[in-house]
């Protein structure tokens, strides 16, 4: 607590010293519905601390009216910029106009809104299709032309990550005739269902002997599926290759143990690129692109998974 107080006073002091750049930034977060979301909050706060930014944080608890109220309060406080992770896509026009009138730049994190692009400075986010494509391309290079029957654990049926990550993966393996998706079922993004559905895949595919690789739309399902593979007497990572998306800490443990092969990062660091864009904008008025795509970095067993686990385990995942 004392540390935080000191930090804040340092921030205020540095403001007084007239250091260039945005010093007071409001951040309206959706809530903490998932580990990833909690990590995003932690990372944003850490980034702000490193840059000496006074971050005003507001948790909307999944309600748009809370977010709009938070934005109005930021505007009233006269912050230098606003970060917002919008809970829904519509209904933002009037509050964004208010921010524009007050000449406060707004940066969207992680999710988009339906308002005119003129009303915000930029949006930082990942490309779900691209993530799937990276996973698919990794598999193509990993099997190196050999026959490979793939089973797929989809996200919640009908959700955009499930649709886009499926589409991206299919694009990634499009050129490789040796790779075929033989079974695809929803695992609802959960460990329990991931394990249950994987068990049925193993049953249906000759005890798992006919499966060469597993592609899971998120790491949690992969972690569940890895247990199912182990219980079926097979070695995940060797007998069945495992590739998934998100890069949460638990999958790095599996990577370190040789039980998973690759994960594509959905970085919780949306704030870093956002702060970079704002700094450039305040320094010389550089207008950033309207969409800043975060890197979908691929991690394999070769990328020091144990170290990555240590770096991530306290982010709140």
């Amino acid at each position: 607590m004392l540390e935080r107080l000191l930090m804040a006073s340092v921030a205020v002091f540095s403001l007084g010293a007239g250091v260039a750049g945005a010093q007071t930034i409001g951040f309206s977060q959706i809530g903490s519905e998932s580990g990833w979301r909690a990590a995003e909050t932690t990372v944003t706060m850490n980034e702000a601390k490193e840059r000496g930014i006074d971050l005003r944080f507001s948790d909307a608890q999944q309600r748009q009216e809370n977010q709009i109220a938070a934005l109005r309060s930021f505007i009233a406080q006269g912050v230098d910029a606003i970060l917002v992770a919008p809970v829904v896509a519509t209904g933002w026009d009037s509050v964004l106009e208010e921010a524009a009138e007050a000449e406060i730049p707004v940066v969207l994190l992680d999710r988009m809104v339906d308002s005119s692009p003129d009303l915000y400075l930029t949006a930082v986010g990942s490309d779900l299709v691209h993530e799937g494509r990276v996973a698919g391309e990794w598999l193509v290079s990993a099997v190196n032309g050999e026959e490979c029957r793939v089973v797929e654990l989809q996200g919640t049926t009908g959700s955009s990550p499930a649709i886009d990550r499926k589409k991206g993966f299919e694009e990634g393996i499009a050129g490789a005739d040796n790779i075929e998706i033989v079974r695809s079922q929803t695992g609802d993004f959960t460990r329990t269902r991931g394990k249950e559905v994987m068990e049925s895949f193993l049953q249906a595919e000759n005890g798992g002997a006919d499966i060469c690789a597993l592609y899971a739309h998120n790491d949690d399902m992969a972690v569940g599926a890895i247990q199912a593979i182990k219980e079926a007497g097979l070695k995940p990572g060797e007998d069945i290759l495992v590739v998934s998306i998100d890069a949460v800490p638990d999958i790095f443990q599996a990577l370190a143990a040789g039980e998973a092969n690759a994960t594509v990062e959905l970085t919780p660091n949306m704030a870093g690129p956002a702060f970079d864009a704002l700094e450039a904008f305040f320094a010389d008025g550089t207008m950033p692109e309207k969409f800043i795509q975060t890197e979908s970095k691929l991690y394999t067993q070769a990328d020091d998974p144990a170290g990555e686990y240590e770096a991530r385990k306290d982010l709140g995942y």
Partner: peptide
């Protein structure tokens, strides 16, 4: 359910 996935998932269990 918890023992099965070696973890407690408050949202989904």
């Amino acid at each position: 359910a918890t023992a099965d996935i070696r973890g407690a998932d408050a949202n989904n269990a």
